[in-house]
Design a protein around this nucleic acid. Structure first.
Lengths: 217, 217
DNA sequence: CATTAATGGATACCGGCACTATCCACTATC
DNA sequence: GATAGTGGATAGTGCCGGTATCCATTAATG
């Protein structure tokens, strides 16, 4: 398959495909002449993954390059790929490092030990959590931390399901890709579900229905 | 308080504050002369909220403007604010509208009725969910949909806690802000927790620990 | 076999976004 | 009265995902 067909099959413009190759997201086609190359189903699959990560997962091109490099490296242990896939999140790192941040880090450390999690507060996710909690405190919503255990419980359920899902993938390369998909797209899935459940929960409580065209107060 | 002090207290540069005022995120200070204005704690609080929504929540300036306009409008019913706060998510809307998308929409509709949710598939969150599921299917991960009920269960727990949290805010304006904070920052919190739980769950299953320096498979 | 279309590769350019810099006339403060 | 700070306006910056354009070469087509 040549680049035009790849473009037609995936809906990605040819110059964009070239751009992804330049950025290292997609391996180049195999050259058959000086200006001819062929692409196979692996390229097609990779290209769809890239678009899903971009459009649905909201990842940046450079982050995708990192994650895919980890995916392609057979030496890379699975949990490192997971780490690379996970580290994409979190706000911009202009931390204040004030009293709220310190308190938040303590809260996170307490949570980790309380739940007996096999992780460490150096985990980027823990840093992100601390940042979010610190922001919450600065906004006067420090009480929100009381929900942490409820959140953690739900997160455990989801994570358990995710890992079980990854586990039952047959081949290892499928597992690795499964980690990426589960981490990134799973987040989009859960986020959407949470928002839908919000509508439902507030409808139950306040009597407003979710469909538009409702009442005024 | 004048703009310089506001800047010092919040760590936001003066030109940036002016920019937020221009973009309608922050009300202008009250003019005392032609080129002097005073700002109060409400400005300070609002400014912190803006930064949290930007840095932690990953929202765009225009989205924040929409949400804050809804927050400031006392006529706006609560669930509409929630909608405005929630609609910020989801990928770019260049939908394919193919077989996968149709199947995904059916899956979403089934899920809504199965769980008896008071929402409709016109909900933007439902659209986002359908998009994510369609992407999953295109990647050959259609089986992921089997996790949907586990995800939904967890989402319900979280949403219930969120709504209960909002409910116990005393004043109404606090409730409204609580909705925004709970929706946006709550997502950051859950996302971080999920990634931490991933590490823990995969450690339990594969015997790899969260700290680096592990094994090969 | 001649013409047209497509390709790989390189470079330049584009629009959107979140600021940042500069300038101005004016005011507060020392 | 000198210096710093202010509101307001306009222009510029750096990054990011692409697009556009060009070239020499090769494939496809009548």
């Amino acid at each position: 398959m040549r680049i035009g067909e790849l473009s037609r099959k995936t809906g990605v413009p040819v110059p964009t495909i070239k751009y992804y190759v330049r950025e290292g997201l997609l391996p180049a086609g195999e050259l058959t002449s000086r200006n001819q190359a062929t692409y196979d189903e692996a390229h097609e699959r990779r290209l769809r993954l890239i678009r899903a990560l971009l459009d649905v997962g909201g990842m940046k091109v450079a982050e995708i390059a990192d994650v895919l490099a980890a995916v392609d490296d057979p030496e890379r242990p699975l949990h490192k790929v997971l780490g690379a896939a996970a580290d994409r999140m979190g706000g911009t790192a202009d931390d204040h490092d004030d009293a709220e941040s310190a308190a938040a880090r303590t809260t996170v450390a307490d949570l980790i030990s309380r739940r007996g999690w096999h992780t460490h507060e150096s985990n980027p996710a823990a840093t992100d959590l601390a940042r979010a909690l610190a922001a919450l405190t600065r906004l006067g919503h420090g009480v929100f931390a009381e929900l942490l255990d409820t959140y953690a419980e739900a997160a455990e359920q989801v994570a358990e399901a995710d890992v079980a899902y990854v586990e039952r993938r047959v081949a290892v390369e499928d597992m690795v890709e499964g980690v990426v998909v589960g981490t990134v797209l799973g987040e989009a899935v859960f986020s959407a579900l949470r928002r839908m459940a919000h509508v439902d929960a507030s409808a139950r409580l306040f009597g407003a229905e979710g469909a538009p065209g409702g009442e005024k107060s």
